[in-house]
Design a protein around this nucleic acid. Structure first.
Length: 375
DNA sequence: CGCGACGGACCTTTTACGTCA
DNA sequence: TGTGACGTAAAAGGTCCGTCG
């Protein structure tokens, strides 16, 4: 998707300002993170990359900033490998205190299951009856399922892990307990994807060293008494939700961007029309050199060139306030009308643009104009 | 070194279930 | 009590990448 805003003249002779918001949609993330694509980042990070053929004009960023808008939105919390791993306190690759505490709890759980592997498997119909402290008791059903998964042995394929339960069996949806969701959420904050490598967290805590599959997925599944497939599905769904939310945020931001740029475009068109009207004024204005005008970079007022202004300052000094010399762009339409010969005329364009430009974008605060460089 | 098979991880879409107003 | 909206677990199909023979 490409939002294009053309500012200025359509003809090639004039310098038109082409604004584009490159919005990559699709399989954008692949290849950028050196591995498989992070689709969540694909919608967000791709916008940064803006992989268009032509080099990105600097005006894009500067204009966005000049519009008082930041990109990406500050609320951007996009998952994905390229943008993931914000500085959080929780690190699954380290041993948090709670996890360390849970290690011993898990050991106790293991002992309990070894004594009675099927304990309580059918005693509860609700998957949410996780009464008790996490993770020692994450719900009997979940525990039973975890035990069943371990009893059946880990499949090399995560998809196959469910096949042993019988494909004909009705798909039973279970609700993860709050504790399980919270723990998975913490893991997701750290890494939106499951780390296939050996988890240093597991090694550090060494409570899963005998698992034989020291991966994050297996570790989480083991700790939460879920099947690895469940952990995998949860992460997939969580990434999808994150991406969806991020897409909504980005869409809203782009909408505001488009509105702001449209307004800026309208304003610039108006200025162009006013300048054209001035250009078609009597020849008196025409022999003013173009270098007469200069823009104050700090306050964006148009100032007259000192040398040029000096040569033309004499008539200006004779122009009293309230005459055409003090007219600003606010009423430049009236200025555009050719003054009758003999009327006092402005000495330069500087007076015409002496007033501070009005920016319709209310979100953009303007710094106060330094008095030294301004008219 | 190039190539195809394979496994693993991920993404997107869809389905189905549980909850709640 | 029935119902629709919503959240979410789960599955299916596809893609990509690394590994191996």
């Amino acid at each position: 998707m490409e939002l294009g805003l053309s500012l200025g003249e359509p003809d090639a002779g004039r310098a038109g300002l082409e604004l584009g918001l490159g919005l990559g949609v699709g399989d954008a993330g692949r290849g950028e993170d050196g591995g498989r694509g992070s689709g969540a980042a694909g919608a967000g990070a791709r916008w940064w990359a803006a992989p268009v053929a032509e080099p990105e004009p600097a005006v894009r960023l500067s204009l966005l900033s000049s519009l008082g808008l930041q990109w990406p939105p500050a609320s951007s919390d996009c998952g994905g490998r390229s943008s993931e791993a914000p500085a959080r306190g929780f690190d699954v690759n380290r041993a948090p205190s709670s996890a360390a505490a849970s290690a011993s709890a898990f050991a106790a759980l293991e002992d309990e299951e070894e004594e009675d592997p099927g304990a309580g498997a059918l005693s509860s119909s609700s998957p949410n009856d996780s009464a008790g402290s996490f993770p020692l008791d994450l719900g009997r059903r979940a525990r039973a399922e975890g035990a069943a998964a371990r009893a059946g042995g880990e499949r090399s394929s995560s998809r196959a892990s469910d096949e042993d339960e019988g494909a004909s069996a009705a798909r039973k949806k279970l609700r993860l307990s709050k504790e399980q969701s919270a723990f998975l959420e913490e893991s997701f904050k750290e890494h939106s994807t499951l780390n296939p490598e050996t988890s240093t967290y597991c090694i550090a805590t060494s409570f899963l060293t005998d698992v034989g599959e020291p991966k994050q997925k297996a570790a989480l599944a083991k700790q939460l008494n879920l099947r690895p497939r469940q952990v995998e599905v949860w992460f997939q769904n969580r990434r999808a939700r994150t991406k969806l939310k991020q897409t909504e945020v980005d869409c809203e931001y782009l909408k505001r961007c488009c509105e702001a740029l449209t307004e800026e475009n309208r304003r610039l068109h108006k200025e162009i029309a006013e300048l054209r009207a001035l250009k078609s004024a009597p020849p008196f204005y025409m022999h003013l050199p173009a270098t007469t005008l200069s823009m104050c970079p700090s306050c964006e007022r148009v100032a007259s060139n000192p040398t040029s202004a000096a040569s033309t300052s004499a008539p200006a000094s004779s122009a009293p306030p309230g005459t055409a010399a003090s007219v600003t762009t606010a009423n430049s339409n009236s200025v555009a009308a050719a003054p009758a010969r003999g009327e006092p005329l402005p000495s330069s364009f500087a007076a015409l643009f002496a007033a501070t430009r009005s920016f319709p974008l209310g979100s953009q605060p303007r710094p106060p104009a330094p008095a030294s460089n301004c008219l």
